[in-house]
């Protein structure tokens, strides 16, 4: 597989007076798994649809390997496998036929198509459903068939819109494993997900969108650093949980108490100082667990920052 860069060049899409996305500039190198995160209506799906040529940009362009993506062009469709949010046109087929047909249409030989279909049926636990009609499946099963149909013949660019929607925890885990296995030096995987916590394990780069703009672009670690250096601490009191609660209140407002346990999020320095103080008093603390903030924590903190800024701007305008 030869390597292809993906470039978004001053890309914008406007529907009436509303910008679905605005002045997006990005270069994505091969070999990376990139996550598009953000609230509903942030413009993530529009970005994927512009990539595959389903939505025509109002301004700017998308380039693949230096060539401009034009809607309906065959070379674009040959390079990109796309899983949309909505069901695929596979409802009349059986599960096995649906996956195999996708493999054949992607140019695989019958033998490869059969073999790859079988592998995915097993990995996604769909073997027992192989002869069931796709239209009769549950939402989650239907989603798995869609994922299998896209992953059965992976292309240099794989774009997945909410791949784990409607899936149970075990299946979500398997799908993330499959996505991780797709990682290749020449491949770009671009995925939209609301499941920040699970996406974290596979992502090399995180793009956070809000109001049609990219608000953060970097690795998961840089996102955490971006929102501050903090720790999540969970403490079970040996005696006097009220004392722990009082101490925590002095350093942060983000805490919860459940009977003898106190959970809180605070700056790394403050949290470590407090822990050192508690551990110096025998019997005060029965157990402690300390966590680095997850990508989800960082994402939520970032969203709180935006909302705070937006509220402040609104108040300033009113004044």
């Amino acid at each position: 597989m030869s390597t292809i860069n993906l470039e978004y060049d001053h890309l914008s899409k406007r529907y009436g007076d509303t910008w679905a996305n605005h002045d997006i500039n990005l270069v994505i190198e091969p070999g990376s798994i990139v996550g598009l995160l953000g609230p509903n209506g942030a413009g993530k799906t529009t970005l994927l649809r512009q990539l595959v040529g389903l939505t025509r940009p109002t301004e700017g362009q998308v380039r693949l390997g230096g060539r401009t993506v034009a809607p309906g062009k065959r070379w674009v469709k040959e390079l990109i496998a796309y899983l949309p949010q909505h069901p695929l046109a596979l409802g009349d087929l059986t599960v096995q036929e649906a996956i195999r047909s996708s493999a054949l249409l992607r140019g695989q030989s019958r033998r490869d198509a059969d073999q790859n279909t079988e592998t995915l049926l097993t990995r996604l636990n769909l073997s027992s459903l192989r002869n069931r009609q796709v239209a009769g499946l549950s939402g989650g099963e239907h989603r798995l068939v869609g994922i299998a149909s896209v992953l059965v013949a992976p292309t240099p660019i794989v774009a997945l819109d909410e791949p784990t929607n409607e899936l149970d925890p075990l299946m979500r885990h398997r799908v993330w494993q499959l996505i991780e296995k797709l990682r290749e030096p020449a491949r770009i995987i671009l995925l939209v997900s609301h499941n920040v916590l699970e996406a974290e394990r596979v992502l090399d780069r995180v793009l956070i969108m809000n109001d049609g703009r990219i608000r953060h672009d970097g690795g998961p670690l840089s996102l955490r650093q971006n929102v501050g250096d903090f720790l999540k601490v969970s403490v079970t009191a040996g005696v006097a949980p009220e004392r722990l609660e009082d101490d925590v209140q002095a350093i942060t407002t983000e805490f919860q108490r459940h009977e003898t346990a106190v959970e809180f999020t605070a700056s790394r320095l403050e949290a470590l100082k407090l822990l050192a103080q508690w551990l110096g008093e025998p019997g005060l603390v029965a157990s402690v667990s300390v966590h680095e903030p997850s990508l989800e924590d960082a994402y939520l903190a970032l969203r709180q920052q935006w909302e705070g800024n937006d509220n402040q701007e609104a108040e300033e305008r009113e004044v």
Binding site: W75, E78, L79, L104, L105, R106, G107, A153, T155, P156
Partner: peptide, 8 residues
Amino acid sequence: MTRQSAPF
């Protein structure tokens, strides 16, 4: 670039 499509 790698192309992936079926013969007609």
